[in-house]
């Protein structure tokens, strides 16, 4: 692979039922590129959690994925309310998701922890009232 490949996705914040579209397309793309199933799994899980978070908390956002020869970078950006306490948000089981979201099987407080678990590096840049950017890297 020479030049890195880039993929851009808009994550619709109004449509909770279509959440996951970006991750699913990306999974397909990575499969076509011949990336190993374990790497695909990690990228898909991390990206899906990020997508769900953007839909639940931020009214949508964007996902940009860059596939390099040695790593995959995922950049998630939203203009949501920001994360008030990142230490708490990183803790398994902590969630600020509302009741209706919990009834759908989300809001278990596993989003960010799952993203961290499945990536080799995760950097969160967040500002209250401005938005959140998450940069994740998975080494190939």
């Amino acid at each position: 692979m020479g030049e890195p490949l880039t993929f851009h996705f808009d994550v619709d914040g109004d449509n909770f039922t279509s959440a996951g579209e970006a991750s699913l397309s990306m999974k397909k793309n990575l499969r076509q590129l011949g990336i190993s199933p374990e790497i695909i799994r990690r990228v898909s899980i991390a990206m899906y959690e990020g997508e769900i978070n953007m839909v639940i908390h931020a009214g949508g956002g964007t996902a940009d994925v860059t596939v390099h020869s040695d790593r995959i970078e995922i950049l998630l950006a939203d203009r949501g309310p920001g994360i008030e306490n990142i230490d708490l948000a990183m803790r398994e089981g902590f969630s600020t998701a509302p009741e209706n979201i919990r009834n759908l099987g989300f809001g278990a407080g596993m989003g960010l922890p799952n993203m961290k678990k499945n990536t080799d590096s995760l950097v969160v840049d967040t500002a209250l009232g401005v938005g959140t950017t998450i940069r994740m890297t998975v080494l190939i």
Partner: peptide, 29 residues
Amino acid sequence: LSWVMGRANEGDLWLTIMTNVNVIAVATL
């Protein structure tokens, strides 16, 4: 769903009582 997402393995049979469409996304991923 997030729990399942992080722990179910490829090839598993997944038993659940959830029936919203996000189940399909998690199953696919």
